[in-house]
Design a protein around this nucleic acid. Structure first.
Length: 812
DNA sequence: GAGTTTGAAACT
DNA sequence: CAGTTTCAAACTC
């Protein structure tokens, strides 16, 4: 299914979906994911691309169209309202929950545990049947363009069941140091290596499926996509993967894209390996950068694992754990956060709950990670501030160019896990660990079966853009007669922040949008398509990053909204939330537009006015109605009104150019009146400016640039000088303070005691007397006195140095 | 800080 | 689509 419709893509800002290095994702066959109720429906996700692509999504969704079993599993398991959980079998390790009303629960049911899973090779479009492989009923696919994140369950369901029945604790097959090699789906010779932390090979080791030599022992190779069988790359003792185990590794493509381009899709695959002995399933995910495995764990750190368990019951429980929220990145890198590691427990079992809170207003996508001793618990979308662990940063690189997934070494920085998807259309996704223990997700309620649809969310912050296709949970009861093809676009940049959430047509979607934060604007997509937008105040995004409560609760009242609104206005350490979290934005000074027209930069950027100087401002939560109307009006007038004006140019042109071009008449395009010049880009062929001097060879432009550079240099020099001076002063203070107390190494001036001063003064007076006696002119007298003063100083310094030397010798 | 200039946005 | 008006930022003094 197409997660992103061309229409939506065309509507989205280019900066959100910078398409560079992005290629179309071949459309994959529906694989069993139960997220899409209607196979035929295109899940349109607005993505900002110059060329509409269907594949730019990081979608946590699965296409259930082909799998009835999956659908059933979801139906039975989605008892929780607004919970999007992905879990397999008994112990539910991964759950994605969304506190918003739409419920998406991906939970494998026992019924499907032994079912044959069809895996679709998204690249070739072939369907691979993997018998004996447990089906991960909760398709968890994060796909950006060609990239997909696949949760693979490799374990045997029967084995797990047997182990459970036997009362034995599930054990983890994978040992520390083991590496899990996963070949790119549909791509041969392009394995994706998932390294288990620890004793594994050194980071940066590139592994190729077909190259046994390069493969260090303890590697497990999983071929995903066209090949259902597991290749055993390494045959070594200890953690070595046995053939049997290797056979048990199955790749299940949970979600899929239906890419049309020839570009090789990159899929991020989380495999779960369970041995036939009933060992507890455990999924290990390690970072891989361009085919190189990076060890993120510090020595001694237990391997970070993600355990995918299959709950027997449908109830969803919340495990205290780490919660990771997808939030806009501040870093320029493109980051997609996917997995969470919990290095803490030494217990044989480690379950990681990955609840993803995706509200329909879901500015936040939270992945909860918990280390639970109880393997049987089903993760709910509950997060606790405690137990927040450092998470791994995973970067997924393009399969085609950068054949391997790029995984950024996960710093020990807590709460953040990143997955970088170069070449992906979702550019930047960051999961931020929520900080509160409050349950954001609604525990499994008696809610009825829900229809989940892929919901791409694009978030960009400054240079960072985040595109997170999110499986949108949506209850059928409440809303759409048909599956929604909605997408959430969240953009937050330093110059602009906005959250645009494509949604189904307003009449259909609005009931669910009660959960959207106030200020969210619903607008139908131009052309009367099935998809519209929900523009959510950017403050929410910011706040979501900070507050765990931000998760949009499933409750229809959207309780969090009030709090959010309050937070947005509350100063934080003297700064507003927005200021504290992100960017310095110039306050507007609107007087007549009520800040509801594009004249207002705040409004144009999709932001609420905050700390502005505007008068009669309606760009706030108090005037939701007006604001929504204004946004709709703007979109009606220009569907691209909220798109960044500076986007990627055509082939061969500058990377950045004004989307419409300027129309300057008198400024020569060398003043900030000119939007091109203001954006520090040169005018292009589409500009209609008169007397333009903002071109490459323009001497005026060069002069200005030089002046600007010179000014910048001066500022930098001044800053450096200040810094240096400050450093010297502080260093001086640091050195003198302890010395005085110790008595050794004192600086010369510390020897200027009262006695010394008196002696010096006597010397000076004596010199003055001499000059007076010899009838020296005043100037000469002053000179002699100053000279004497200099001599005194020298003697003081000399004495000080001698004293220091003596002291040092004594100490020795 | 007030006034002017400028060009995008809005309007006709 | 073109011309005009409105608007707020950029700029000047």
């Amino acid at each position: 299914m197409d997660v992103v419709s061309p229409e939506l893509n065309s509507l989205l800002p280019d900066e959100i979906m910078d398409t560079e290095a992005i290629e179309d994702i071949p459309h994959s066959q529906p694989d069993g994911a139960a997220v899409q109720p209607e196979p035929g429906d295109d899940t349109s996700v607005p993505m900002e691309t110059d060329t509409p692509m269907a594949s730019e999504n990081l979608s946590l969704c699965s296409d259930a169209s082909s799998s009835t079993q999956h659908t059933q599993a979801l139906t039975t398991s989605t008892a929780t309202d607004s919970t999007f959980s992905i879990s397999s079998a008994s112990q539910l390790p991964i759950s994605i929950s969304s506190t918003s009303s739409p419920l998406l629960t991906l939970k494998p049911s026992m019924v499907t545990s032994t079912a044959t899973t069809k895996t679709t090779d998204s690249v070739t479009g072939t369907t691979v049947s993997t018998s004996g492989l447990q089906k991960l009923t909760a398709p968890f696919t994060i796909s950006a363009a060609n990239h997909q994140i696949i949760l693979n369950k490799v374990a045997s369901a029967q084995a797990t069941e047997a182990a459970k029945s036997a009362g034995t604790q599930p054990q983890v097959i994978k040992q520390e140091g083991q590496k899990l090699l996963v070949t790119a789906i549909g791509k041969s010779g392009q394995p994706i290596v998932l390294q288990l932390p620890h004793t594994g090979s050194k980071p940066g080791v590139s592994q190729t499926a077909g190259d046994p030599k390069s493969q260090a022992p303890q590697f497990k190779v999983v071929t995903i996509g066209g090949r259902s069988e597991l290749k055993q790359v390494v045959g070594s003792a200890g953690n070595q993967v046995t053939t049997l185990q290797a056979q048990q590794l199955k790749a299940v493509q949970i979600a899929k894209k239906t890419p049309t381009s020839s570009a090789a899709p990159i899929k991020f695959i989380i495999t779960k390996t369970v041995n036939s002995k009933g060992l507890s399933p455990q999924t290990s995910v390690s970072p891989v950068i361009a085919g190189r495995v990076l060890t993120q764990n510090s020595p001694g750190m237990p391997p970070r694992t993600i355990t995918i368990s299959e709950p027997h019951n449908t109830s969803i429980q919340s495990l205290p754990g780490k919660k990771i929220a997808i939030s806009p990145l501040k870093t320029p890198s493109k980051v997609t956060v996917v997995s969470v590691a919990s290095p803490t427990s030494n217990a044989s079992q480690k379950s990681v709950a990955l609840p993803v809170n995706v509200a329909l207003g879901q500015q936040i996508l939270t992945v909860q990670q918990s280390t639970s001793a109880s393997p049987v618990k089903v993760a709910a979308s509950q997060a606790t501030t405690q137990n927040i662990k450092p998470v791994q940063s995973v970067a997924v690189g393009g399969v085609g160019g950068s054949q391997f997934k790029t995984i950024i070494p996960l710093a020990t920085q807590p709460n953040v896990q990143q997955i970088q998807v170069p070449g992906s259309r979702f550019h930047y996704v960051r999961l931020v660990t929520a900080t509160t223990a409050s349950s954001t997700g609604q525990p499994s309620g008696p809610s009825t079966s829900s229809i989940q649809t892929a919901k791409p969310m694009v978030v960009s912050t400054g240079a960072v853009r985040m595109s997170v296709p999110i499986v949108q949970a949506q209850t059928i009861k409440q809303v759409a007669p048909k599956p929604l093809t909605s997408a959430a676009v969240v953009t937050t940049t330093q110059t602009q922040q906005r959250l645009i959430m494509p949604a189904t047509p307003l009449p259909q979607i609005q009931p669910n949008f009660t959960n959207l934060p106030p200020g969210t604007v619903l607008a139908p997509a131009p052309g009367g398509g099935n998809v519209g937008y929900a523009v959510v105040p950017a403050q929410y995004v910011t706040q979501l990053q900070q507050s765990p409560f931000v998760t949009l609760a499933s409750s229809s009242n959207f309780p969090a909204s009030t709090g959010i609104q309050t937070q947005a206005r509350l100063p934080l350490n003297g700064l507003s939330t927005a200021e504290a979290t992100s960017r310095p934005r110039k306050p507007c000074n609107c007087t007549k537009s009520q800040c509801l027209k594009l004249y207002c930069d705040c409004f144009a950027n999709g932001e609420f006015c905050n700390n502005c100087n505007c008068n009669n401002c309606f760009n706030n939560l108090e005037h939701e109605t007006e604001r929504l109307k204004a946004i709709k009006t703007c979109l009606d007038r220009n569907p691209e009104a909220f798109k960044p004006k500076i986007g990627k140019g055509k082939e061969g042109e500058s990377d950045r150019r004004h989307s419409k071009g300027c129309n300057c008449k008198r400024s020569g395009c060398l003043k900030n009146y000119c939007e091109c010049y203001e954006a520090k880009i040169m005018c292009s062929s589409i500009c209609k400016c008169v007397g333009c001097k903002n071109f490459e060879e323009s001497p005026e432009r060069k002069t200005l640039m030089h002046l600007a550079d010179a000014a910048e240099v001066r500022v930098q020099q001044q800053t450096a000088a200040k810094t240096k001076l400050s450093s010297q002063i502080s260093d001086l203070l640091m050195r003198t303070t302890p010395v005085i107390s110790s008595g050794g190494g004192r600086l010369p001036y510390t020897f200027v005691t009262k006695e010394v001063l008196e002696a010096t003064c006597e010397c000076l007076l004596e010199q003055a007397k001499k000059a007076e006696q010899t009838h020296q002119p005043q100037a000469e007298t002053e000179r002699l006195i100053l000279e004497e003063f200099g001599h005194c100083l020298m003697r003081i310094i000399s004495s000080a140095g001698k004293a220091k030397a003596d002291c040092a010798s004594i100490n020795c």
